[in-house]
């Protein structure tokens, strides 16, 4: 069942640009980009119980590193650009995560919220580097001799990177590191008594989460082709949190589904911008009341990670 579904799903995703109009190809790229963020956020919040309302900040750092790097050094292959965007964002994640080690719950949420504002302010004020509020037109990404200019080409880039990152996340959560993160969420004293170094794993979760979000930010820059600070406001951070709550805290498949739901809803509700927060709020409340485990808790057994 699992194998068959994976095979059919992969075939569909590979043929997708030949089956649907261009706009849906673009939209699917956004779903995958958001899914990478949701997985990163879930590793931090769902697995390690560290709430973040600042992931739009990490997303922005990744997007701007990728954009500025491509502008200044057009010869760098896109894969290297994305890795660098991820690593730079991971460093920022460490810089935020280490001082946040003593914070929990609401206090951590406040600190990360503030971080999101700081990043937007920084982008606006470092205009020699980021062009401030004018935004940056992101040059076409290059992979060797290939110019990834069409929506389909960008889609395959996003899909390839996304597949690697999903696979890595599934591996992490099935092995020692993932269990250590879950142990911290479940009981800090029992985790310590089992030899888990709390500070090290909490910091690692921050860095990995930021890495994922930074790579996704870089992909986002290439997919949309233009970035400006107003795209990374606090509401984007809230959208990311909504993805993992609706999808399921502590679930990789849930992260992907949650990202798809929110991204598609966002798109369908484009004409009703003003009602979006209201509707998302209602969905979140409904989800917490009636489906606290998120969509992941209602998915069939074979989609869950094998134990």
């Amino acid at each position: 069942m699992r194998r068959a579904a994976l095979g059919a799903g992969s075939a569909l995703l590979l043929l997708w640009p030949f089956l649907v109009p261009r706009y849906f190809v673009f939209l699917t790229s956004l779903v995958v980009v958001n899914a990478i963020v949701a997985i990163g956020l879930n590793l931090l919040s769902g697995y390690t119980n560290q709430l973040s309302f600042g992931h739009a900040g990490f997303f922005a750092v990744g997007a701007y590193v990728a954009a500025v790097l491509t502008l200044r050094a057009p010869g760098v292959p896109v894969v290297a650009t994305l890795v660098l965007a991820g690593l730079a964002t991971a460093l920022v994640g460490l810089a935020l995560g280490i001082p946040c080690l003593r914070l929990e719950g609401l206090y951590l949420a406040m600190a990360t919220l503030a971080f999101g504002f700081v990043v937007v302010e920084a982008i606006q004020n470092l205009d020699w580097l980021t062009r401030g509020n004018d935004g940056v037109a992101v040059p076409t990404a290059h992979l060797g001799p290939l110019a990834l200019a069409s929506d389909a080409a960008k889609y395959y880039l996003v899909l390839g990177v996304g597949a690697l990152m999903v696979a890595a996340a599934v591996n992490i959560t099935r092995t020692r590191t993932g269990r250590a993160l879950l142990a911290i969420r479940e009981s800090e004293i029992a985790a310590q008594a089992s030899g888990v170094h709390l500070a090290a794993y909490r910091t690692l979760a921050f860095a990995v989460s930021a890495f994922y979000t930074g790579v996704a930010g870089g992909l986002f820059a290439f997919v949309v082709g233009f970035i400006s600070p107003d795209a990374f406001d606090v509401f984007l951070s809230v959208d990311f949190v909504a993805m993992i709550i609706i999808g399921g805290l502590g679930s990789i498949p849930g992260s992907v589904v949650g990202a798809a739901v929110i991204t598609l809803l966002y798109d369908w509700l484009a004409a009703f911008q003003n009602y979006r927060p209201l509707l998302f709020g209602l969905i979140l409340i409904g989800c917490m009341l009636f489906m606290p485990g998120g969509i992941a808790s209602r998915m069939p057994k074979w989609t869950q990670q094998a134990q």
């Binding site: 992490i172 020692r176 590191t177 690692l204």
Partner: peptide, 11 residues
């Protein structure tokens, strides 16, 4: 157990 973060991620 010895599997660290990177070796775990690479599977």
């Amino acid at each position: 157990l010895r599997a660290g973060f990177l070796r775990g991620a690479l599977g």
